[in-house]
Computed example of a mutant assay.
Amino acid sequence: MKLSSILLLPALLRSGLAYTELSDDTLRTLPRPGPDFDIKNGALLAPILRTRVPGTPGSEAVLDHFIDFFTAELPRWRITFQNSSQVTPVSNGKAVPFKNLIATRDPPWAKNEGDVGRLALVAHYDSKLTPEGFIGATDSAAPCAMLMHAARSIDAALTSKWDAIAAEGVESIDGLDEDAHKGVQILLLDGEEAFHFWTHDDSLYGARSLAEEWEGTMNAAMSTYKTPLHSIDLFVLLDLLGAKQPRIPSYFKTTHWAYKRMASAEHRLRKASLLKSDGKSFFPEAQKGEKDQWLGGYVEDDHVPFMARGVEVLHVIPNPFPSVWHKIEDDGEHLDIPTCEDWAVITTAFAAEWLDLEGHFETKQTKRSIHEDNETWAGEKTELFD
């Protein structure tokens, strides 16, 4: 990503989306990554902490890690790829391959691609070519692991919600409440980093290709959403996360309400002592007003090709950048793991609230009720056989 003085004007916010806060009991139930974020052996994070320049074996290995994760742990998610190849300033005229992974979970009654509006949770998985051996732990190995954790954490609740709706006899998406039309996508993008020097041509390779392709891909004629691009209700981009005491500005007026929602989730988690990092808020601009400064396109990142086409963006990137930005020190040893874990939980809470999953997580109270029901049932069975 690059700091820029360009101001990109986002389109009008798609308003009216339902958004239900999680109860304190549900917040307490949200899982933490724990050992999965161990930098040496963690099942989610460790395999990403390696060089992964596009078109190299390291990149392929990390992509395989993502595929294995969704295939083994989240089989209900549909995995697709959007591939492109482009010549870079250092490739000597040869085309470099770029591979974007898209993992999608839509309601089971959505028969057509254009039936569902989606929350897109996004990070780039490539690492910078220089300095040699650059890992890019905050940039953006850790954000990728955070999204994997969030996807896994909401999966069962999504199933519970949709099973409950289906139990009412739903046969099609027509006539359902608005929240029943919601789906979610994890976009793991390739080629964000510049190979030589950041320009509009030498950067955002995967994002530029995907945004262009989705803009030109037409859904079925009677679809609610004209293209895959139109189906993105909100594009939430995580980048440069994993250092201590991040300060996330609210960059865009039209998504400030979503920024405040994420800030509220963090505040409630912190108030309930469910976060491990120090007590300073990651979101200091929740009270920002109309007359305050809005940075707009000050930071160029993977959101730019999407926002230029009218997609609404919540850019979760700190200002100032971490001190290790684009330095060899941006490795696993320089991550603050409590902060990484907190980001994973905050992202999970935000996604769960966006998708209206309150009441569909197995909370301690739910487990206790199930246990009590089982005990009652067992007692009744004993009496029957006495």
Rank of each mutant, 00 (worst) to 15 (best):
W377I: 14
N100D: 09
D25A: 15
A103K: 00
T199V: 04
Q293W: 04
L129W: 07
K40D: 13
A180P: 06
G55K: 07
P108V: 01
N92H: 12
H124R: 04
S250K: 05
L269M: 07
T382P: 08
P284S: 04
T254R: 06
A308Y: 02
A145V: 01
K226P: 11
F81T: 13
A167V: 08
S59R: 04
K94H: 05
T217Q: 10
Y251L: 09
H371T: 15
L355E: 01
A272C: 15
A378G: 07
V299K: 00
G310H: 03
D331V: 05
D386C: 14
A150K: 08
K367T: 14
V87W: 06
D163W: 04
K161Q: 07
K367Y: 10
D24R: 12
D278K: 10
F69V: 14
K364H: 12
V170G: 01
D336C: 10
G16V: 07
T199H: 03
D25H: 12
F69I: 05
A110L: 12
H360Q: 05
V313F: 01
E266F: 00
F66P: 00
P57A: 10
P75K: 08
T88A: 06
T159S: 14
T339P: 04
A180K: 06
I6K: 06
A120V: 03
T138A: 03
A145I: 03
F252A: 04
L274D: 00
E178K: 03
A141M: 05
P284T: 02
A164N: 07
E171V: 14
D356F: 09
S203V: 13
K381M: 10
L22P: 07
K2F: 02
E358Y: 03
D177M: 06
A194H: 07
T227A: 11
L240D: 11
G175T: 12
M1W: 05
F235H: 13
A349E: 07
M307R: 02
I337W: 04
A286H: 03
